[in-house]
Write a protein that binds this DNA or RNA. Structure first.
Lengths: 136, 136
DNA sequence: CATTCGCATTCGTCAAGGCGTATACATAAA
DNA sequence: TTTATGTATACGCCTTGACGAATGCGAATG
């Protein structure tokens, strides 16, 4: 709704921030509620929200409202080249130590959301495409 | 000499600017003199120099002095993931219309440098690795 | 030497963007 | 209709970085 034309500069700029890379890593192949992202990244909620807005404006993620919860998922850019780079980047993140740690913490949070004040009653992430969540 | 440790954010930020993408596209698999880059991009020389400095600090290019001429070439980042993304990006640029036009103009300049005031007497680009320049 | 040439850096200005804080908005619950 | 909850936006502050213009610096040339 915001950015109609895909912008290459904007695309790379969106990837040039560690918080946004962490968000993309956590979202991965799921459609995930914002509250999980806030919980795992640990920062103030507006910070997360602003970075998600940036990713939206860059056309890298899309949002869906479900009641009072917002679900985010990664959308592949229209340009084949950009899509390949995004996939490659996500794969790259999987090999990163701190990114792996983030995902482990997300998995734990998913398995027992009631232990986290922010997550009590929150909807679980929904795998998209053919991906499956072995742990949960 | 400037940045010792490779920085992921810095890497993507370096790619998030059209002038720098044009520079990387022109350098490609050659070791090329700055004067060509100034000639093709057409802007003021300090602008080109500043962007080249940015790419250097991000560890994406390296510079070599030869007399009064400076030659730039692309260096692959130490991280395999980053290297793959850089290669993919360079390939992506090859498919872009305006980037192709830049390369055509570079080829023309290489074939008759004497026609350009800035390039009279300038050293020709030197292909690196196994790449060959069919046109020149 | 001084000059010229190729390129890099500095300076001042301005816009973009990151952060924390406060607030607005949307939905659901009471 | 009020209140609470989840999320987004607005605001002020500060840093980064892009630009044009001017200047600095190394290497060749006279």
């Amino acid at each position: 709704m915001t950015k109609r034309t895909f912008n290459v500069e904007r695309f790379f700029q969106a990837l040039g921030d560690n918080t946004r890379l962490r968000l993309l890593n956590l979202i991965g192949e799921q459609e995930i509620c914002v509250c999980y992202l806030v919980e795992i990244l640990g920062g103030p909620q507006p910070k997360i929200s602003r970075h998600l807005a940036y990713l939206r404006s860059a056309g890298i993620v899309s949002a869906r409202r479900e009641g009072k919860w917002m679900h985010y998922r990664i959308v592949m850019p229209p340009h084949i080249g950009a899509a390949q780079i995004l996939k490659q980047t996500l794969g790259w993140l999987k090999d990163d130590k701190s990114m792996q740690a983030d995902r482990v913490r997300l998995t734990k949070a998913c398995c027992s959301p009631s232990k986290y004040a922010l997550l009590d009653g929150a909807p679980l992430p929904i795998p998209v495409q053919e991906a499956s969540c072995k742990e949960c």
